[in-house]
Amino acid sequence: MFKYTVRRILLAIPVLLGILVVTFALGRMIPGDPCRAMLGEKATAEVCERFTEKFGLDKPIPVQFGIYMSQVLKGDFGDSIRFSRPVALILIERLPTTIELGALAILFATLVGIPLGIFSAIKRNSPLDVSTMTVANIGVSMPVYWLGLMLAYAFFLLKDTPFWLPPSGRLTAGVASIPFYEVWGIVAEPGTAKYFFLEFFSNLYFFNSIITGDWKVFQDAAKHLILPAIALATIPLAIIARMTRSSMLEVSKQDYIRTAKAKGLKNRLVIFGML
């Protein structure tokens, strides 16, 4: 497993390099003046000159690419043109949200996908199997952003019922997640590594609310995560369900399964055995 993981990570390196080359090339191939695209068409020539110089856009393309690559390899993704802040910092700021959402989506996909696959395999060609696999196929094909909007609409119809779920955001306006380090009186100077790590972990709202015992925030964060997690989980859920079903069917045809059944082993035990 370790070797597999490492191999996959190493294989990702050329892929990432390829993506860097392609995105850099695309960025340079788009017609138009980057200054006026960013600052608006009323930006003066002087402003654009400073903009071009600041972002090194006056240098030859190969030189720009060289600078870009050397900075990326050092972990410096440059400053966001929109926010004028380090891209790496923005990524890391948003990472806790991604981690929470991704983890919940995978959990949901696994907990629902595996049982669905098992039931489909056991009840092969039954209406349950056909409908499950149809839904799974739809799930694989459905764009997540569209499903997200549809879920938001669907749950909006449940307004004024306990089943209503918020369509966006991480917390209800006015509900504040107080960082655990503030609750515990830990002081860190902004800008230091200690502050940065404390901020990072306190931005994991589930983690932060659990260790501080703030169940109101926990509940609110959970409500906000359900819809995006379901939307994000749809594709992996469908894949997991289909894979589980086909694996189960394949294993069920093995001699040892047939032998076990022939010897009178209960169906439930055979299924657990297959798992």
Partner: peptide, 10 residues
């Protein structure tokens, strides 16, 4: 190094 970006003290 990416994590170190914000650690520059004012």
């Amino acid at each position: 190094s990416a994590c170190a970006q914000p650690t520059a003290a004012p």
